[in-house]
Amino acid sequence: MKFNTIAITAAMHDEAQAAEARLKARYAHVPPEEASVIVALGGDGFMLQTLHAFMEKGTPIFGMNRGSVGFLMNGYTDDGLMERLARAEPINLRPLHMTVEDIHGRHHEALAINEVSLLRDTGFAAKISIHVDGVMRMEEMICDGVLVATPAGSTAYNNAVHGPILPLGAELLALTPISAFRPRHWRGALLPQNARVTFDVLDADRRRVRAGADFNEVRDVARVSVAVNGTVSPTLLFDPEHNLEERIIKEQFVP
């Protein structure tokens, strides 16, 4: 792939800022709004912020890890940036669209690249019912919460709460409970990528629940609906020898 103009952005911590200064001294660059590709320096959190910021514009993003986890990032080096960009392979992501009605009757919307999650917001356990494509699948789950994860996000929070890791080409969503008390042994479900999942919060005034789409959060939710968004598809760029599909497969064999 050939890019005419690049932008270089970085997280605010020292390691990322120092890398940004070195790269800007070596390579011609423009503001992110004018670039044909964005080089993002940081960890997965900063990558998610950058993807959200430029999702509508559709600018491809090449990340280099100057953070902690860096699952969505390539390895970092000062050398050969333009050659790496020319060889990079694209991965097109399909974010989730979250719509929320809160207990005050207000409506909210947000996009999620990793997951949409519901979490209890008081000392009471949450009580949540689940519909899939309009069909009641669970009348009441007593839990700390529940989430829907994309394949790209299945290795993040979803995996931390023992949800399955999904290959990018699986065209599936992971529906995963978070510390479910009843039904005690329910481990979640795999759903078609085109499924619409609706959560109703039971006793929502007393058992307060918040909903998050990546880092965008809504409190006091009554109903949350989740489906794949069909209008935007952010693009990540990876070194051929270090692509996301391969990383997801390798992650399933980590002891």
Rank of each mutant, 00 (worst) to 15 (best):
L41Q: 11
K24Y: 01
L236E: 00
T155K: 14
I61T: 02
R196F: 03
V201R: 06
R22N: 13
G145C: 05
A174H: 10
G169C: 05
P95D: 09
E246G: 14
E246F: 04
R207F: 02
G45W: 00
E109C: 08
I178V: 10
I165E: 00
D79E: 13
F253I: 00
A18T: 14
N243M: 03
A110Q: 08
F199T: 07
V197K: 11
P192V: 06
D144Y: 09
L51S: 01
R247W: 11
R184M: 12
M138D: 04
R207C: 07
P32Y: 08
E139M: 04
L244E: 03
F54H: 15
G123E: 12
I113Y: 03
G145K: 00
D44F: 04
G188S: 08
L111E: 03
M73H: 04
T99Y: 02
T50H: 01
T5A: 13
G134A: 10
A195H: 04
A222Y: 02
H97P: 00
P177C: 10
K2E: 07
L96H: 06
R66K: 15
A88F: 03
T5L: 00
P90E: 09
R84W: 10
A174C: 09
Q193F: 05
F46D: 04
A156G: 09
R137M: 15
I8L: 01
F3A: 00
V161G: 07
T122N: 04
S154R: 12
P60S: 02
C143M: 02
A35W: 09
Y157V: 04
T77V: 06
A211Q: 02
D239H: 03
F181K: 02
A110T: 09
A149Q: 05
K2S: 13
N65T: 10
L81W: 09
S154L: 10
N92E: 15
L175G: 12
R26L: 15
I6A: 05
I61C: 02
N114P: 11
H29T: 07
H242T: 09
F253R: 12
S68L: 06
F181I: 14
P177E: 12
D214M: 08
T198A: 11
K127Q: 15
P151E: 08
V132Y: 13
A25R: 14
D200C: 12
H29D: 01
I130A: 08
A19F: 04
L41F: 07
L23K: 00
V69N: 04
N159W: 11
V232P: 01
V197I: 14
A149G: 14
V218A: 01
M1V: 05
R223S: 10
R137C: 13
A204C: 10
G43A: 06
L236G: 01
N159P: 01
T198V: 12
Q193Y: 06
G163P: 03
F199K: 05
H131C: 08
M82C: 07
H162N: 12
G188E: 06
S179H: 02
G212H: 06
H97M: 12
V30S: 12
G58T: 03
H29A: 10
A222E: 10
V132E: 11
A25W: 06
Y157P: 00
L111F: 15
F3C: 00
